[in-house]
């Protein structure tokens, strides 16, 4: 069967044509009795169909309003669920971002990496008859250079009461803790370094530890002191870092 004429006829009957198209169609109908007959025929069917559907839907609607049929949940239309899900997603995203920022992201990480130098012992290792402490210290240094940090740290901890190696051991321990990204523990170790010779190093490492700990104000305070101290070996580095973290 040919549907094409009926589609046009339906548009005409339902008044969904533009005024120009409607006028053109009416002219056509007026000139063509067969077309006029088709319009009347199809209009009769549409009226019948509309009446049947209206009666059927009205009965269905009354039944639904009376509560016999529960409302159908559309997959795409429950606004409250969509809004709740969107809010929950936003909170989750913000929380995840917050966790990432506080726990993982460090804006000063690159500065610490750039200026962090390995620990170097500047003391004398050439004892002819090494005692236990000497051997332990040498072993600690060797392990540190091999990056066996945990074993090096154990030995260094054992030497913190040593008469000769106490401050070096604390400094080594502090550096290892910075390498292992434990800045708070590193600061505790570095704070106890008393020797004036090693104090400058300990101060500089402390500044780096504060940056690693995301406490730039405290790092700035130390670096400012170092930058003013003409005798410090870290004066240039301190000035550079201060510029970077401004």
């Amino acid at each position: 069967m040919e549907h094409a004429p009926y589609e046009t006829i339906e548009l005409y009957i339902r008044n969904l044509m533009t005024p120009a198209d409607r006028k053109a169609f009416e002219t056509q109908v007026a000139a063509d009795p067969d077309l006029a007959g088709e319009v009347a025929f199809y209009e009769a069917l549409l009226l019948h169909r509309d009446k049947s559907l209206a009666a059927e839907w009205k009965a269905k609607g009354e039944k639904m309003l009376a509560g016999d049929t529960p409302p159908l949940k559309a997959a795409t239309v429950n606004r409250f669920r969509i809004q709740w899900a969107a809010a929950a997603s936003l909170i989750l995203m913000l929380t995840a971002t917050g966790i990432w920022y506080t726990q993982f992201y460090n804006p000063y990480g690159s500065v610490v990496t750039q200026y962090m130098e390995p620990y170097r012992y500047s003391g004398d290792l050439g004892v002819q008859i090494p005692g236990t402490e000497d051997r332990d210290w040498q072993r600690a240094l060797a392990l540190y250079r091999e990056r066996s940090y945990e074993q090096a740290a154990i030995l260094a901890n054992g030497l913190e009461n040593s008469r000769q190696y106490a401050d070096d051991a604390r400094l080594l321990g502090g550096v290892i803790l910075i390498e292992q990204k434990h800045p708070e523990k590193a600061l505790q170790k570095l704070r106890d370094v008393r020797s004036p010779v090693l104090r400058q190093k300990a101060q500089f490492y402390s500044a780096l530890a504060f940056l690693q700990d995301k406490k730039p104000e405290k790092a700035r305070a130390i670096l400012t002191e170092i930058a003013k101290d003409g005798s410090s070996h870290y004066q240039d580095e301190a000035r550079e870092i201060l510029q970077k973290i401004e």
């Binding site: 339906e10 548009l11 339902r14 969904l16 839907w57 009205k58 609607g61 009354e62």
Partner: peptide, 22 residues
């Protein structure tokens, strides 16, 4: 009234049908 709403809804669906086809 309920009847007015149901009538409007039915008429809307019929117009909706033709609008989709158009």
């Amino acid at each position: 009234e309920k009847n007015h709403i149901l009538d409007a809804y039915t008429q809307a669906l019929l117009s909706f049908h033709t609008s989709i086809l158009a």
